[in-house]
Design a protein around this nucleic acid. Structure first.
Length: 408
DNA sequence: CATCCACTGGAAGATATGGCGA
DNA sequence: TCGCCATATCTTCCAGTGGATG
């Protein structure tokens, strides 16, 4: 048996490429930082804080800049005795209503043991509890709501919080909301009254271009990687791939980190472009499998129907045919089949996740409809399905058919 | 030019689950 | 226990859509 051995030829401090790493300096965001600081100025001056709304794609530095500036703010505020600043941060990714965000905030503020459950109360009751907790803290309170777009149009909390003082719900506490959103459209779908207040100060974080990404990578590499273990062109490649896709520093750093891990496992001397290419496809596959793992039973059956059609080389494929396939899979797994409209909903979800793609078919008197097909490699799809629903024999059959047809 | 197909996508209503306070 | 409350997931209903067809 091979022994565990420490491999240290490539990374010096791999964490510096990770999600939680806070660099000492934020690169390429000077303008945004300046504007952000201005927006936070009232906190130092002792006035009611501005509500601030940040938007931009994932990985363009919204959260990083916020963490960085609020740390600084908390340090600097210590110099003034008359200001009592508290910061509450909450990631709303898994919370899809104001109600749930409010519950989560209350639970954050309460000592462990005193948490309230996530359902059962009327919404206003939860808001009242939240106000009580905020009053108990007092002073200036900044509430950071990361990925706040996941609450959709159930935005009552965003209406309530900025007005709490005016409505007499808060007295000693001055509350400012900092909303962070990955979704540009989120701002527009908000209630106009919410836009007025929450978006008092708006900051846009544009995607990084390839040059900026390269600079960011270079500054992290100094800390993270040992000298001379990166081939020429590797950083360029990471930057280019990420710039073309999302303009996300997160993505560029992930590519480099995973590429480095691959290089280490292959006992290479340095990270080469080929390692980055491999990292790219592995990350893509992970993204898809992540999406598939979170599907409900019927979501999986819907996907499996497409996979099965793909194995028979019958994709792209219309809803009607997928519905038949889906019904027979339901029968095999002794699950009650849903209506066709519901299958259509699941297919739409799968399309949003980038697992399926659909092409419109406009064939006149014979109707307009979508033709669906897999938008991920057949192999990744069927791998992610392997552990599903007493359907192992059916899945094996699909595999056999696929092999016969040389699919995948 | 009206009609038709085969859906698509929006909206409202039903059902089930789990939790609250009285 | 009962009447509420919030949520997730489905079902039902229906107004489009737009090229082909008569």
């Amino acid at each position: 048996m091979r022994r565990f051995e420490r491999k240290q030829n490539i990374f010096r401090n791999k964490d510096a490429l990770g999600e939680s790493y806070q660099p000492e300096r934020i690169e390429e965001r000077d303008e945004e930082i300046e504007e952000y600081m201005n927006a936070l100025q009232p906190v130092i001056d002792g006035w009611e804080p501005n509500n601030i709304f940040l938007y931009g794609n994932t990985g363009v530095g919204k959260t990083a800049v916020t963490d960085y500036l609020l740390d600084r703010l908390q340090d600097d505020v210590a110099a003034y005795d008359d200001i009592d600043l508290s910061i509450i941060s909450l990631n709303c990714k898994t919370l899809n209503s104001s109600y749930q965000v409010a519950v989560e905030l209350v639970n954050e503020l309460r000592p462990s043991g005193g948490e309230i459950s996530t359902t059962g109360y009327p919404q206003q009751t939860v808001f009242k509890k939240l106000y009580q907790e905020l009053e108990a803290i007092g002073g200036t309170i900044l509430i950071v709501l990361d990925e706040v777009d996941s609450i959709g149009d159930r935005d009552e909390l965003l209406y309530e919080l900025p007005r709490a003082r005016a409505n007499g719900n808060l007295d000693s506490a001055k509350v400012g909301v900092i909303g962070i959103s990955n979704d540009f459209k989120f701002r527009d779908q908000l209630d106009p009254r919410v836009q007025d207040t929450l978006c008092e100060r708006e900051l846009q974080f544009p995607p990084y271009d390839a040059t900026e990404l390269k600079n960011i990578l270079e500054s992290r590499v100094e800390v993270a990687v040992t000298d001379g273990s990166i081939d020429t062109g590797v950083l360029q490649l990471c930057a280019a791939l990420a710039a073309r896709d999302s303009g996300s520093a997160r993505q560029a750093l992930d590519l480099l980190r995973l590429g480095g891990e691959i290089a280490e496992n292959r006992e290479a001397e340095m990270i080469k472009e080929a390692h980055i290419e491999d990292a790219r496809s592995q990350l893509e596959q992970e993204r898809v499998e992540e999406g598939m793992r979170e599907l409900t039973t019927h979501g999986r059956l819907a996907l499996l129907a497409v996979i099965s059609k793909a194995a028979k080389e019958e994709t792209p494929c219309r809803t009607r045919d997928l519905y038949e396939e889906y019904r027979s899979l339901c029968e095999s797994s002794e699950t009650d089949a849903l209506g066709q409209r519901s299958l259509h909903n699941h297919l739409s979800d799968l399309r949003m996740l980038g697992i399926l793609s659909a092409h419109e078919n406009r064939s006149g008197s014979r109707g307009n409809y979508y033709n669906y097909e897999l938008d991920v490699p057949f192999t990744s799809a069927i791998e992610a399905m392997s552990d599903v629903l007493h359907l192992t024999t059916e899945i094996d059959t699909i595999r056999d058919i696929a092999a016969m047809n040389n699919v995948g």
